[in-house]
Computed example of a mutant assay.
Amino acid sequence: MKWETRALSAADTRLPDGYETAPWGAYAPGVLQRALIGIARGSFLHRGRMRYLMTMLIRRLGTPLDVTFQGLRYRIEGRNNLMDYGLLLHPDYNGEEIRFLRGACAEGGVAVDIGANIGLYSLPLARAVGQGGRVISIDANAAVLQRLKVNARLSGLDNITAVACAVGDSIGQVDLEIANSDLAIVSVTPSAQGSIPLRPLRDILSDAGITRVDALKIDIEGFEDAALVPFLETAPDAMLPRRISIERGGPGRTDYQGCAAAFARKGYRLVGRTRLNSFYERS
């Protein structure tokens, strides 16, 4: 799909007054908003036109909104971010993916979320690994990473390390653009004058003091091969995740060829798929 993009602006990273400091419930949905949310969550029409219609109606009644999802707290704006819409309206948004990754996590474990957005995966994984564990949440988009930090604080989670950078196969800088239709969909272009750092995953984890990984989720709009293959080929066994959820890409939503080949070389097996993601596990 071809996205119309634009440069990330200062306005995109500016949070509404009180967004970071207001106590939980300050933006509780009103009666009519709660009714619309209930109708959407009770319907099988969670995507497409239904989602756009319901979110348009809810947003016109006022935002931000404080909503609970999977027992965790999210403060959302619904401002051209489809993940906001999913959290707001879908009772089990990406639930199969989250449960799969959570199955590799125990108290004291480590999870990595590449393309973390506002924390759909990071927050439940942080709860799964407990205070003795850690989640490394990586995103090149400062606009969404700010919101992830707010959501983690509201949910009482202090075991998430947010890393603002792009992930690739080299060290450098990139320019970042966002899709007009979705704040979280980004396009990165290598540039010596770029404002966003580009780093290999192995370096990011080493700097964070990570020596093992239990679960990894990756969804970075087509850069999966560049980010993940060098890591899989060079990381010691202890750092190879037990479970990986990876967005499917390419014609017919096939798996990324480079990643699939690296998974096979490293002893991963494909254990399941959803509409958008593939699940790999290593014994």
Score class of each variant (00 low, 15 high):
233 E>H: 05
240 L>K: 12
219 D>T: 03
208 A>Y: 01
224 E>G: 12
180 N>V: 07
205 L>N: 07
182 D>A: 09
201 L>E: 09
172 G>H: 10
235 A>T: 04
234 T>L: 06
215 A>Q: 02
225 D>W: 01
250 G>S: 10
245 S>D: 12
178 I>Q: 08
199 R>E: 13
234 T>F: 00
195 S>K: 14
192 A>R: 13
251 P>N: 02
213 V>F: 05
230 P>M: 06
186 V>F: 01
204 I>M: 07
228 L>R: 10
202 R>N: 09
176 L>M: 07
183 L>K: 14
179 A>D: 15
219 D>I: 11
230 P>Y: 05
175 D>V: 01
231 F>L: 12
183 L>Q: 11
228 L>Y: 08
244 I>W: 08
185 I>T: 12
247 E>I: 07
201 L>F: 05
222 G>T: 10
218 I>L: 09
228 L>E: 10
218 I>C: 03
229 V>W: 01
186 V>P: 09
175 D>E: 15
189 T>A: 08
231 F>H: 02
222 G>M: 07
247 E>N: 03
227 A>M: 09
177 E>L: 11
207 D>G: 11
207 D>L: 13
223 F>A: 15
226 A>W: 00
206 S>V: 06
200 P>H: 06
213 V>K: 05
183 L>P: 04
230 P>A: 03
209 G>F: 09
206 S>T: 10
205 L>C: 10
228 L>C: 08
192 A>S: 10
185 I>S: 12
193 Q>P: 00
